[in-house]
Structure formats: structure tokens, C-alpha cells
Amino acid sequence: MSVSIRATDVRKSYGDVVAVDGVSFEVNDGEFFGILGPNGAGKTTTLEIVEGLREADSGSIELLGQSPWPRNKALLPRMGVQLQGTAFFERLTAREQLVTFGSLYGAGPKRADEMLEIVGLTDKAGTRVEKLSGGQAQRLSIACALVHDPEVVFLDEPTAALDPQARRNLWDLLRTINGQGRTVVLTTHYMDEAELLCDRVAIMDRGKILNIDAPASLVRGLDAPTRISVDSGELAAEKVAAIADGVAEVEDDGVALTFTTRDPATVLTALAEQRVLNGLRVRGATLEDVFLELTGREYRA
């Protein structure tokens, strides 16, 4: 399989602060690749180095077979970039923004109209940017990154600060973009987003990549118990351990009685025999569990 991006032992520091500490990874053509990490993990700096916006202190980057630094003008038409904070031109409508961005790459007004339809903003073509909602502005930002039909698209936390409905609408758009054959690289700290969208993810913290794999493979590799819940009051907490072997922690918050086990089949059978099934929920490990296992649970501002 051809490789769109190859990063090898990339390092970047700002004084005593090490932002990127020996990062290496590859992204295949047509892959949806995620870089996950808490705030300050080095995700954005890594992405900016790959895009050619920053110079690495050491290491090497290949983007579509070329070095992005020094600023490589041959690569600019081949990649689309959506930054964390996109600044639009003041007083322009959504269509005028796209026409302006497209003109920088030789794309005409027809392409701008096509992109408005793709991102679901045709009815907002004549609306000035400051009148768009947060979700609409994010979709316009992605449209600006795609108006010149790039091969690789970089998205830096595109759903940050969006409401749940806007996030899910944007997810549909991102699937469409990737389904058209484009390579997509996404940074995010939303685990559900990465688990749903990405073919593979790199979990990053303190400037280092801790693990890279498909989300499902990372979850399967985590030795985590299953959490089983029933409605509170269905069973006394002190009797949970008596119904089946292998029950570990028990918690009753007044709404649900939740316990962990490494033998869910036996426990579920015992609950069925006791007819304790109201509000039954079974939760295995998720990408969030993998993330917390690798990066820790302490709060970092």
C-alpha cells in the first residue's frame, strides 16, 4: 500500500518545553488516521510540522513523497488544511469566501457552488460568515480546505465546541470526504469521534506516540473488565457477589447498580436466573479506557 505521510523521529522544542519528542508514524493512501491526546500532548505541533507550517528541530517528514519544509509550493495544491481557529474574510458571504479561497488555487465559482452543496450550505450561500452557527462555520471551514480538490486533508480538532447534533452532522461529512478516496488526518481528544471515524489512531501524550493501531485492536488489547448495570433496587449491593463468582467492584448510585467482572457470561446467566434484568446494560472496554490507561487519569490544565 502506498504511503501518503511518513514521519521519522520528529522532534520540536520551544526553549525547555519539548512539544514533539521523537515521533514516528506512517499514513497510508486513502486512510482516515487519527492523532489523539490530551491538551498539550503535541498533536497540533506535529500536524503543523507535517503540513510544512513549522520546521522540525530534527527528524524527517515526507508528504506525498516530498519534504514539506522549506515551504514546498508544489505540495500546496495537493493538501487541504483546516486549522483549529480558522479566520474568514470579514463581510463576505459563505459563497464569496469559497470563491476567494478557490481563486488562490485556480478553482472557479462553479467549484465553490459544488462545495456548498457537499457541505450542506447551499441555502446559506448568501449569508455572511458572522451570521452562521458554529457547526455551519466549521463546515464552511472544511469546504475551504477542500475547494481545490486536495489529495490529503488535515483537520485539527474540527468538532471542538460543537453541540452533539452539529458534531454528528460533521462526522457524516468527514466520512463522505474520506469515502471519495482522500487521505484524512484528524487530531481530536474526543474518543467516540476517533473510534467511529478512524481506520487507525495514534495515541499521543507529552510529545510522544504511545501506541498506534486500529481502535478495535487497541480495545481488544486492553485487559479491562466488563461493567454490568441493572436498575438500583433490583438487587441489594451486598448480595451481588453471592449470585456469581468473579464479581469485583460494586457501586450503587441510587439510579443503577453497577459492578465489574471478568466473567460476564456467568454473571449474566445468574442475573437471568434471578430475573434481575430491569435496566440491564453491559459495557465493555472502549477507546477511552485505552486512552486513560496510556495517558493516566490525573487532571492536567
Rank of each mutant, 00 (worst) to 15 (best):
M1P: 07
V3T: 15
S4T: 12
D9A: 12
G15W: 11
D21M: 10
V23G: 01
V23A: 03
F25R: 05
N28I: 00
E31R: 10
L36H: 07
P38N: 11
P38R: 14
T44K: 08
T44E: 04
V50G: 01
A56V: 05
L63C: 07
L64N: 06
S67L: 04
W69G: 00
P77H: 05
M79D: 00
G80N: 02
G85C: 02
T86K: 00
A87Q: 09
L92Y: 01
L92M: 14
L98T: 01
V99Q: 13
S103K: 11
S103Y: 12
G106S: 09
A107S: 15
P109S: 04
R111Q: 14
D113H: 09
E114L: 09
L116M: 09
I118A: 11
V119P: 10
G120P: 09
T127M: 07
S133A: 07
G134Y: 02
R139C: 03
L140T: 06
I142Y: 05
A143L: 08
V147W: 04
D149N: 13
D149M: 03
P150E: 06
V152E: 04
V153D: 06
P158F: 12
A161Q: 12
L174Q: 05
L174A: 04
V184P: 02
L186S: 01
T187N: 13
T188Q: 09
Y190L: 13
M191V: 09
C198M: 07
I203V: 14
I212E: 10
I212G: 08
P215R: 06
A216S: 13
D223M: 04
S232G: 11
A236H: 08
E238L: 04
V240R: 03
A241L: 09
D245P: 05
E251L: 13
D253V: 11
F259M: 12
V267P: 08
L271P: 03
R275C: 00
V282C: 05
G284L: 04
E288P: 02
V290N: 03
L294R: 06
E298G: 02
